[in-house]
Structure formats: structure tokens, C-alpha cells
Simulated scan of single mutants.
Amino acid sequence: MIAVTRKIIHVDMDAFFASVEQRDNPSLRGRPVAVGHAAARGVVAAASYEARQFGVRSALPSVTALRRCPDLVFVPPRFEVYRDVSRQVHEVFSRYTDLIQPLSLDEAYLDVTVNKRRIETAWLTAKEIRAAILAETGLTASAGISYNKFLAKLASDHRKPNGQFAVTPDMGAAWVETIPVSRFHGVGPVTAQKMKRLGIETGADLRAKSMEFLQAHFGSSAEWYHAIARGEDERPVNPNRVRKSSGSETTFDRDLTEPSEIEAGVLRMADDVWRWCEARQTFGRTVTVKVKYGDFQQITRSRSQPGPLATSEALNRLALDLIRSVLPTPKGIRLVGVTVSNFSELQTEPESELPMFAQAAA
């Protein structure tokens, strides 16, 4: 049997949240825009390309973002609008393939090895998809095309914004060697720093390390790092990936010590999570409350029930029990979060359908 080379496209919307805001408000076009809140404890959820020129990025504290770019315009997030646009984009995807694996509202893998429109190449398929997205949403997208998911995702960032790049089977392994490991999907900032201390800064450096070396320093992740350093990734595009949890968190505009204020914050986050669960009729057995103190120490408290939490009152009651287990607090609390997991019904929403967005509490 002859092995079929897969054709994988990773589509990534360009500065998605910020681009939607610039599309809907012409006065924001060409200006540095951050989606988020300018409050002292606010966090940037997304930044336009004009803002990125000043070093403004998602997850950056708002005060730091304003320091880097004094002309930065903050726009409050409109998640319902972003979801609606995301649905439009995914409808475009569905015209070309049923093998779609969403990663978040603004990106997805598509397996177009056999595409519905019988377009000859993945390159032309990606080009047509991007053109359709632009025509129907007014927004641009970038695409990476390759024979596996790892390389396709890496490639989609190579010609941003509004571009596409292909990594073919004959160039994959050599191309990976030229890329900094800090850009590798699955290598976070902490791991990248650890690799740097071990003399690993590029794909070539990673490839030069033996499996024994990688196992000694990275444990169960060794096989993954060994494979991607050679441009190898056998993971299929999985349209039925099951979401494992849903959560929401908020950063207060000041450190809180008053129990009633902290509990109110927890209840707001529980309400956010409940709306997601109710809308999808997906209910979990486990509730986790996250607490981050003013000194950035972080703790969690979890509890599981015999059956799924089927009412908002049950979720609220359990979330309050968990937060009360750390009250009164010995020090100020800057952030709280609530997560529900151990779902009773399988469902296939993308894992980042409702991204945890740290924002200043009103």
C-alpha cells in the first residue's frame, strides 16, 4: 500500500479581535488598538498590528501596554460578535472539508487531502479559503500548508498578516532546523528558557540532542521534541476533539481582602461558566476555584460531585464553598477563576471557544 501524503492547512485569522473592532469602527483603522480594559489591573486580550509595532501583545498588563504605546486605544471585548464571525469563518471551512479541528475562535486545522471542491493543490485551496473569508467577513486570514499539523501551524505565522506559506515534504526537516524553538507549538516560555540553558535555541540544536538526553531533561515530552525536531508529527486532524473543561477568570482592579467582594467575583465567574454549560447542555461534576494573591502566589481548590451540576444554584453553592475554604484571606487577592470539568456528555466545542480572559472587575 502506498502511503498518502496528507495535505494540512492551518488557518489563523489576523489579529482577530482587534481586526473585528477596526472593521466595525472605521475611526479605529490604522490606529493602535487593544481589546481589553485600560484599568490598572486590566490585561490586553488582543492587539492590532499597529499596536504590535510598539511591543503590545496579548496577555500584557494594560499599564505596560500604555507605557509602550501612549496612543493605544482600548476597546472592551465583544465576545458574542467574535463568536458570530468565527461561525462565518467555519462555515467557509465546511465547504472544503469535514475534517476541521478548531483550536480557538480564530484558528483551525483543516485536512484537505481530499477536498470537497476537488481543488488540485492545498496551496490553491488555502488561497480560495482566504479569499472567501475576506469577501464574506471583511477580515484577512493567514495560512500554513504542509504535510502535518506541526509544520502547518509553524508555517501560518511565516507570512503574516494576510499571507500563506507552504512547507513541502522535501523541505520540512531542513526548514525546522532554522526555526527558533521558542516558536515551536508545544514549547512554552518556561520550556524555551530551559532549552536555552541546555544550549538548545534552534530546531537544529534540538535535533542534535539524543533521545536519552531529552528524556533525562524533559521526561514524557522527549518523544514529541525528538519528532518535531525532524519535522515529524503523526497526529490526525480530529474534528471530534472533546473539550475537557470550561472556565472563566477575572483580575480585580485592586487586591481584595473583604470576603463579600471576593465571593461576588467568584459568583460572576460561575455565572459566565454556567451560561456556557447551559447553552451547550454540557454539565460537569468537578468545580475548581483558582485564587491568585497580590504577591502572585497561586492556589486552587477543587471538589467533585457524584453527578453533574445541573443548576446554576448548585454551581454557585459549590464555588462559594470552595472560595470560603481560603477565607478569611491572610493577604490580598488579585484574581479569582472558576472552572467546571468532568463533563457528563461528550461534546466537540473547540477548547478555546470561551477563552479565559483576565479583565478588571467592575
Rank of each mutant, 00 (worst) to 15 (best):
D71T: 14
V75Q: 07
V44A: 01
L60P: 01
C69N: 09
V56F: 04
V63P: 00
S58Q: 08
A59C: 14
P76N: 13
P70I: 12
P76C: 13
H37N: 12
C69E: 11
R78C: 11
C69Q: 10
R52C: 07
P61R: 10
F74L: 11
A39G: 14
L60Y: 03
A45G: 14
E80L: 11
A46K: 03
V44F: 00
A45K: 06
V81Q: 13
G42V: 06
R67S: 12
A39T: 14
R78W: 05
T64M: 11
A46F: 01
F74N: 13
Q53Y: 02
E80C: 10
L66W: 10
A46C: 12
V75S: 04
D71V: 08
L66A: 12
R67N: 15
R68N: 15
R52W: 06
H37P: 00
R52I: 01
S48F: 00
A45L: 15
S62P: 08
A51K: 01
S48P: 02
G42I: 07
A38L: 05
F54K: 01
R52K: 14
A47Q: 01
P76I: 14
G55Y: 01
V81R: 15
P77R: 09
V56I: 10
C69F: 02
G55C: 03
R41P: 03
S58K: 04
A51G: 06
R67L: 11
R78N: 13
H37R: 14
P61E: 03
A65M: 08
R57V: 12
